[in-house]
Structures are given as structure tokens and as C-alpha cells.
Nucleic acid binder design. Structure first.
Length: 859
RNA sequence: GCCCAGGUGGCGGAAUUGGUAGACGCGCUAGCUUCAGGUGCUAGUGACCGCAAGGUCGUGGAGGUUCAAGUCCUCUCCUGGGCACCA
């Protein structure tokens, strides 16, 4: 065995062994328990970044651990290859998206291999492969047949200079990112999937999955089921077809406090008012400027204008004004809201601004009328100023008001969802073409099976003015007056079912086959918390669609979910003369510290001059605080990178990058190597004979089995890999302290060394592979079973008890493990320091927590 | 603006069920080893007081519940994620 640890050769050897023996080839076997471990596949943007490394290390550790538990493990990898960055790169570098994407994939695949991840590469695919997206097109046409697809007008961000649709991220402060032009909200017809048909089930089935509670809560809130009343105001002066103005409210108990009605600028009544009054028309136009995102809409200045029309209150018949309000959107609900300024903060602010009446109709539970001069009173309470409904509480008022409205056919109880249907059409090139054709007479028809698939042309030139497909007659002209749809699918479509395709990616005849039911559902799905809502909700929806077509049997795609935090790093910068900042990579900066370790100053190595220390932020190109995984692998090896990433923080938290932390991880692996080397040098151990062990040997043995117990729980159940690594570090520390060359001494040391190697092997598989062989094993570590805890070795003869007086620690007692309550109390009370603190006081109570502490309550 | 998280030594973090706050690592300090070190080893390291024994304070802030609170409750401040066309 080499005395020195050299990661490059160790890693090459291990990776060649795994590849030669096809260790990660997953084969369906009905007699074995399967484990499908999946990480969110990457967008092939160019190079792997540390966030990917974190994600995939987490997955690989779990996959290797489960394999050692005897499971038949599937861990695939592929590429989420359609999307905007490829188009942006095409504009910037004059390279076609397909070429750029496949070249990035080749680079990133090499990097994944260098990190030693155990993927079944035979199942790999990219979503931009025709063999993948053709099934998506086929499935879409089936969804059309089933009535789950429809076309309707929807609002998009329109850049009037570039004459193109912008994504929300391309709208910065209401302006197009490239043109700088003021963005307009424009309505165009788009394709939608009826995800709302599944709203109830998407909500209910959250109870079936083992996901973090916070993610389930976010999804529940997103789906947003609420019970309310849909009710009709009558608009007398607007003409028969617009006479009924419908709103939805979850607070019918406040109905008597309605003092105006707010409508969208796109509402038919607003349009009618605009036809009459040009200032209203102008106002409606202004309401359409700015971005479409909910954050934009929620933070913009609330503005409104009186339409001149009035609405008749459905119960009192009183007339209230109808206002156009810029925060009411036609697409959400009915495009109109009833406003109760006394009990809704947004309505309150609007009423104050436009001097509309504020009428309190809810008192607190003691019947006190609320003060609404400084803000709305939004709590539930008892009704006042509400005529026959006075003194009712929320539930009774809801029922009574609903009954009356129903009787008069002016309203009905409704379950409402916040969730909206999924707009799946994009006016972009680099995506899967939507398989629809349009006839000369305006017919819209899905393509037939023999017209499928629609291949995306890859020889294209791209500029900033929208999709080239719209200019390619060879693409869209189908003959006989038929033209093809030039919109492409939202890329969330591809990421909604790739996990299923991995089960049978070689099938050329069908989207999925029976193998999907062997592997699915995914046992654990690992990826960024930023996907908590959209991607995960769409994938759940798609799974249910596939289930209803009989392609999968399970209700949910992902049984367990692990959401990882982001990777952050220090930032350093200098201010330029023009007010901008120049950012320096942490590698180019040295940090000085005082004798306590506090950072005093940071200087740029290149010129020795100081730089400003910025915050610790998400690794990004713009802040120049990224770390290149490849250079780390070259310098320290993949195992060091994997170890540091798993050690620095638990998976859910953000991970702060630290170069000295990486060095520390490397130091630990060198130490592990040296400990194993030294141990082997000391000769062959005997067999452990429990009865013959001395105290030090017994103690190390107990530590070994405590560590096995803790690591098993930390990796398998808690997924806190940082604490598992810390436990192994403690074991190596204990191991280093036992210098015992007797046969029994070497035997317990051997058990401890092997435990370290095997427990770390999912995390640092290469070094452990080699050390295992050096320890004389003839079979490979990857096929070794996970170690078992010897409960007998865990037994202790004595215990340490903390003794508190009035909750403050005053002494520690070492007592036999089987000491009884009376003995414990006597020993605690007779301790010198305890006596000092209870002197002159009477003891009221003694609380004994077995095995932990004694608290003496004295006064 | 709305929804969801998170704030613990100089730093990353640990404390799993209300029961000894600071495991493990980084950094720093001292010493030893080595021709040398960006090596290895040993010891120390929350703050304050004290020669020591020991004591006081301490988990973003303010209250509260409890024999006991980092952990539970109320309010509040700050940071991060998501908000439907970034992936």
C-alpha cells in the first residue's frame, strides 16, 4: 500500500472498476426490492456548477447507501435541453441552439463522470431528442381528444420595439431587457391544459407523499381552495347583455359593507365605458402597461377610475359605483371584485385614495365597532349594520346570506381555486413544436398519428425578433391550405414526465411500458427548493394524466422529496468611476485576520490594494463568486469535493463555500488514509472476544457501534450527511488515541477502521474502494452490505448526570447505569457545590430525568 | 404586496421528543517535529470576572408559558426562496 494518498490514481482505478463491471446498470427484477433515486436533471448551460455538484452528490450518496441496504437501485441522468438560454447563446455567438446544446451536454457528461456518480448511462436522453419529445406530441393529441386542452386568450409581455413576446425575467422594471422599451400587456390566443380539473386531487394527494411540510404548504396555498359565494350585481344602464355583473367573495359576511365594485380594464363594462368616454379609454390603455407577473401587479401603484355606471346591491338594492381598478385582472376569476373597504386592506387603501365610503359591518366578538380610520378590520367577528343578519357570527352569516341569494337567484355557494390552467404555448423556437394544424377556413385540428412526429428544424438563424419558425415556410406550410402551429411547448412539459421515460427510454414503440410500473414512483427526488411549486405541481399533474391513460399505476410520481439549498460564497468588489462595481473572484483575494480570527481586511492579490467585502451571496457569474468544480477536482480529487459539500451544511440549508473548508476535508481524507496505512503496518488482528476486552478496547468498540447506529439513521432517515461525517470524524479521533498492538487491540481497531471506510463509502466512494481492498477484502466495497449494530457493544456501565439547582447547572455526577432514584437524589444533594447552592433554602421538589439530569427546585 | 423558510462563538454548523448550548470542522493562539513548508502532531479557544475553586451573561430583538426554552406561544426586525414565459 502506498503511504501517500493520491486521489488522481485512486479515482481512476475506482471509476474504471465500476465501469468495467457495469456496476450501475439497472435491470428490472421483480424479486428484488427496487429503489429509484432521482435528481432533477440539469439544463445544459455549458459547465457544471457547484449547485449541480451538490444536488448530484446528495443523490449519489443516497443511491449508494440504498444499494448497500440490498436494494435494486436505479439512478439515471439526462438533460433538460430545451429553453431560452440556447436561443440567447445563438443570438450572441451565432451558433445554432442544437449544436450549442449537444456540445454542452458532452462537456457536462464528462464532468459528471469525473465526480464518480453511479448513473446508468444507458438510459440517458436529452429532451431535445426527437425520440423523447415525439411522445410528448403524441400524448398532447390524446389530451386534445379527451377535452383536456383548449385555446383561449391570455396576457403576455409584449416588447413593441423587438416585436416579440418576453419572458417575465426579460422584463426589468417594466421594460424589455434588450430593447429597453416599455413593455405592454397584450392578449393573444394560447394553448392551455386543464390542470384545474385535477385541482381537488392535487390538493388531496399531498397527504400521500413524504415531502417537507413547507413544500406541501406552498402547494396547498398555490392551489388555494376556498369556499365562497358567487353573486350577481345588476348593472341597470349598460344594456341587456352586460346587465349581470358577477363577483366571487370568500367574505359574504361583509356583503352589507360593499361601497363600490372594482372591475378589470379588460372587462366588457370597462370597454363599453371607454367607447363613451375617451379618458376612460386612455386609462384602460395605461392599465395595460407594465409586466404581467403577479409580483409586478401586487406592488404597482393602485389606480382606478369611475366608469359612471352603478351596480345594484343584490340584497339592499342600493346603488354603488363601478370603478376600473388596475389590480383587477380579467383572467383571474370573473374580472370583477366587490369592495368592502372597512374589512379589506386593499379596498380600504383604494377607498381612501378615491374618497369612497367606508362602512363597517363586522364588530369584534364583544360587539365593539372597529376603528377603521387607520386601516381595515380584517378579522372575523359579529355582524353589525347588516339588517336582519345583525349579531350573526361568520358561519351563520355565510349560510344565511347564501340562502337568501340562492332564493332570489342572485348568487350560489362556490368552491373556488386560486390555481389557474396551465398555459403551455410559447412563441419561441427552441422547444417541442405543438402538433396542431390550422385550415384555410380557420379550423384548428390536432395532427393525426401518421402526421407525427413534428421534428424541430435544427438549421436555423436566430435574431432578437421572435421565433424563426414563424418565418420558415418549409416548416409551417403543409399543403392544401393547411399551416402548422409555430408555437412550441413550455419546457415544463418535458420536465413533467422525464422521470417516467427513464424507466424505458429505449422503447421506440411507446411512450412508456410496463417497466415504468416496476420503478415508479420515484422513491426519492432531490433538487432545488426553487422548484417547490411549479415544476413539482406540473409533474404531479402530468403523472395523474398518464395514470388516467393507463400508462402508470401510481397516483403520485415522487414518494419522498429532498429539497436542497443553494450554494453561496463571499463577494468582493471595487467601485468603478461610473458608479458600477467590479467584482473579484474569492480566489484572487486574500483575507487578513486579527489574532482572534476576525477578518480585518481583504486585498486583491494582483495589486496588493484593498477591496470591499460584499455580502455572502448565491454563486453567480454576475458577482464573480463562483467556484469551478473541475479545478477543484484537479487539485483535490472528486472525493474531497464530495466530502466538503456534504459536510459543510445539511442539505436543506444554503451552503457557504469555504476554500479552507475544502482543504480541511482533504486533510481528513489524508488522515483516513494514514490511519489505515499505519493500522495495516501493525500486523494482523485477532478475532474480537468480547469478554477479554479491557476498558479502552470496550470503549472504542462502543464508539464504533454508536457511530454505525448514528450514520445509519443520519443517512437513511434524516438525510443529515453533515452529522454522519462528524460522527465518523469522532470515531477516527477515538481510533487515533488507542495505541494498542495486542491482538484484541488490533481487532477492535480493525473493526473501527473498517467502519470508517464503509460508512464513508457512499460519500467518498473512490478512496474507500481502495482502502477496502488494502484491508484485505477480495470483494468490492460497492457490493459490501451495510454494517450491523451490535447492541451488546452499546451497553454502558455508568452514566453522567447533570445536576441543576433551579435550572442552573451546578454539578455532574458519574453514577452506575442502574442507580435508583433514591441513590441519585442522595448523591446529587450531597455534592459539595450543590450543597452550597441549596444552603439556607428549603427543597420543594427534585425532578429526575432518567439518564439525563436532576433538577433541584429550592427557594 | 402575497405565500414559504432561516437567524446559535471570529466562521460553517451540532443540540433528533421541552432536559448539560456550542459536537464536528474551519480560523486563531502556544508548543513540538521537519532542511523547508500552503506538512504532521500536541494543547487551548463563546464573552466577562477570578490565582484557582467557581461565578455572571449568552442562541436576531421584546414579552410570555414552564421546575427547565435555541426548541412552545404572542409581537417585531433582518436575510433568503417562490409568485404561473428563467430553469
Amino acid at each position: 500500500m502506498e503511504a501517500q494518498y493520491s486521489p488522481a490514481s485512486v479515482e481512476r482505478t475506482a471509476q474504471q472498476f465500476w465501469e468495467k463491471n457495469r456496476c450501475f446498470k439497472a435491470i428490472e427484477d421483480a424479486n428484488r426490492e427496487k429503489y429509484y433515486c432521482l435528481c432533477m436533471f440539469p439544463y445544459p448551460s455549458g459547465k457544471l456548477h457547484i449547485g449541480h455538484v451538490r444536488n448530484y452528490t446528495l443523490g449519489d450518496v443516497i443511491a449508494r447507501f440504498q444499494r448497500m441496504q440490498g436494494k435494486n437501485v436505479l439512478q439515471p441522468m439526462g438533460w433538460d435541453a430545451f429553453g431560452m438560454p440556447a436561443e440567447n447563446a445563438a443570438i450572441k455567438h451565432q451558433v445554432a441552439p442544437a449544436k450549442w446544446t449537444y456540445s454542452n451536454i458532452a462537456d457536462m457528461r464528462d464532468q459528471l463522470k469525473a465526480l464518480g456518480f453511479g448513473y446508468d448511462w444507458d438510459r440517458e436522453f436529452a429532451t431535445c431528442d426527437l425520440d423523447y419529445y415525439r411522445w410528448e406530441q403524441w400524448f398532447f393529441t390524446r389530451l386534445v381528444e379527451k377535452g383536456l386542452v383548449y385555446k383561449k386568450n391570455s396576457t403576455v409581455n409584449w416588447d413593441p420595439v423587438d416585436q416579440t413576446v418576453l419572458a417575465n425575467e426579460q422584463v426589468i422594471d417594466g421594460r424589455g431587457w434588450r430593447s429597453g422599451a416599455k413593455v405592454e400587456r397584450r392578449e393573444i390566443p394560447l394553448w392551455f391544459l386543464k390542470i384545474t380539473d385535477y385541482a381537488e386531487e392535487l390538493l388531496a394527494d399531498l397527504d400521500k407523499v413524504e415531502w417537507p411540510e413547507q413544500v406541501k404548504t406552498m402547494q396547498r396555498n398555490w392551489i388555494g381552495k376556498s369556499k365562497g359565494i358567487e353573486l350577481d350585481f345588476e348593472v341597470p344602464d349598460v344594456g341587456e347583455e352586460l346587465r349581470r355583473l358577477t363577483v366571487f367573495t370568500t367574505r359574504p359576511d361583509t356583503l352589507m359593507g360593499v361601497t363600490y365594485v372594482g372591475i378589470s380594464a379588460d372587462h366588457p363594462i370597462a370597454k363599453r365605458a371607454g367607447e363613451i368616454d375617451p379618458t376612460i379609454m386612455e386609462f384602460c390603455k395605461e392599465c395595460r402597461s407594465g409586466g404581467t407577473s403577479e409580483a409586478d401587479l401586487a406592488t404597482m401603484e393602485k389606480r382606478g377610475m369611475d366608469t359612471g355606471y352603478v351596480a345594484r346591491h343584490p340584497i339592499t338594492g342600493a346603488e354603488v359605483p363601478i370603478y376600473i381598478a388596475n389590480f383587477v385582472l380579467m383572467e383571474y376569476g370573473t374580472g370583477a371584485v366587490m369592495a368592502v373597504p372597512a374589512h379589506d386592506q386593499r379596498d380600504w387603501e383604494f377607498a381612501k385614495k378615491y374618497d369612497l365610503p367606508i362602512q363597517p359591518v363586522i364588530a369584534d366578538l364583544d360587539g365593539n365597532q372597529p376603528d377603521v380610520s387607520e386601516g381595515a378590520y380584517t378579522e372575523h367577528g359579529q355582524l353589525i349594520n347588516s339588517g336582519e343578519f345583525d349579531d350573526m357570527l361568520f358561519d351563520d352569516a355565510f349560510t344565511a346570506i347564501a340562502r337568501q341569494l340562492e332564493k332570489e337567484e342572485k348568487g350560489r355557494v362556490r368552491i373556488n381555486f386560486r390555481l389557474r390552467d396551465w398555459g403551455i404555448a410559447r412563441q419561441r423556437y427552441w422547444g417541442a413544436p405543438i402538433p396542431v394544424k390550422y385550415g384555410a377556413e380557420g379550423e384548428t385540428v390536432p395532427l393525426t398519428d401518421d402526421e407525427l412526429p413534428v421534428a424541430l428544424p435544427t438549421e436555423v438563424e436566430i435574431d432578437a425578433s421572435g421565433s424563426p419558425l414563424k418565418k420558415m415556410r418549409t416548416f409551417y406550410e403543409m399543403g392544401a391550405g393547411w399551416t402548422r402551429e409555430t408555437d412550441t411547448f413550455d419546457t415544463f412539459m418535458e420536465s413533467s414526465w422525464y422521470y417516467a421515460r427513464f424507466c424505458c427510454s429505449d422503447n421506440q414503440e411507446a411512450m412508456l411500458d410496463g417497466r415504468a410500473n416496476y420503478w415508479l414512483p420515484v422513491d426519492i427526488y432531490i433538487g432545488g427548493i426553487e422548484h417547490a411549486i411549479l415544476h413539482l405541481l406540473y409533474a404531479r399533474f402530468f403523472h395523474k394524466l398518464m395514470r388516467d391513460f393507463g400508462m402508470v399505476e401510481s397516483d403520485e410520481p415522487f414518494q419522498r422529496l429532498l429539497t436542497q439549498g443553494m450554494v453561496i460564497a463571499d463577494t468582493y468588489y471595487r467601485n468603478n468611476e461610473d458608479g458600477s462595481k467590479e467584482w473579484f473572484n474569492p480566489l484572487d483575494v486574500t483575507v487578513e485576520r486579527d489574532e482572534k480570527g476576525n477578518v480585518t481586511q481583504a486585498t486583491l492579490i494582483a495589486d496588493g490594494e484593498p477591496v470591499t467585502i460584499g455580502g455572502t451571496e448565491k454563486m453567480s457569474k454576475s458577482k464573480n463568486n463562483g467556484v469551478d468544480p473541475q479545478s477543484l477536482i484537479n487539485r483535490f480529487g472528486a472525493d474531497t469535493v464530495r466530502l466538503f459539500i456534504m459536510f459543510a451544511a445539511p442539505p436543506e440549508q444554503s451552503l457557504e463555500w469555504s476554500d479552507s473548508g475544502v482543504e480541511g476535508a482533504h486533510r481528513f481524507l489524508k488522515r483516513l488514509w494514514k490511519i489505515t496505512f499505519d493500522h495495516i503496518q501493525h500486523g494482523e488482528p485477532g478475532h474480537i472476544v468480547s469478554a477479554e476486552l479491557n476498558d479502552a478496547q470496550r470503549e472504542l468498540r462502543r464508539k464504533t457501534h454508536e457511530t454505525i447506529k448514528k450514520c445509519t439513521d443520519d443517512i437513511g432517515r434524516r438525510t443529515t450527511f453533515n452529522t454522519a461525517i462528524a460522527a465518523v470524524m469522532e470515531l477516527t479521533n477515538a481510533l487515533g488515541k488507542l495505541n494498542d498492538d495486542t491482538l484484541q487491540g488490533l481487532a477492535v481497531s480493525r473493526e473501527a477502521v473498517e467502519a470508517c471506510v464503509i460508512l464513508l463509502s457512499p460519500i467518498t466512494p473512490h478512496i474507500c474502494h481502495t482502502l477496502w481492498q488494502e484491508l484485505g477484502h477480495t470483494t468490492a466495497l460497492i457490493d459490501a452490505p451495510w454494517p450491523q449494530v451490535d447492541e451488546k457493544a452499546l451497553k454502558r456501565d455508568s452514566m453522567t448526570l447533570a445536576v441543576q439547582v433551579n435550572g442552573k447547572l451546578r454539578a455532574k455526577l458519574e453514577l452506575p447505569a442502574d442507580a435508583d432514584q433514591v441513590t441519585i437524589e442522595c448523591e446529587a444533594l450531597s455534592h459539595e457545590n450543590v450543597r452550597r447552592h441549596v444552603e439556607g433554602k428549603s427543597i420543594n421538589k427534585v425532578i429526575v430525568i432518567p439518564g439525563k439530569l436532576v433538577n433541584i427546585v429550592a427557594s
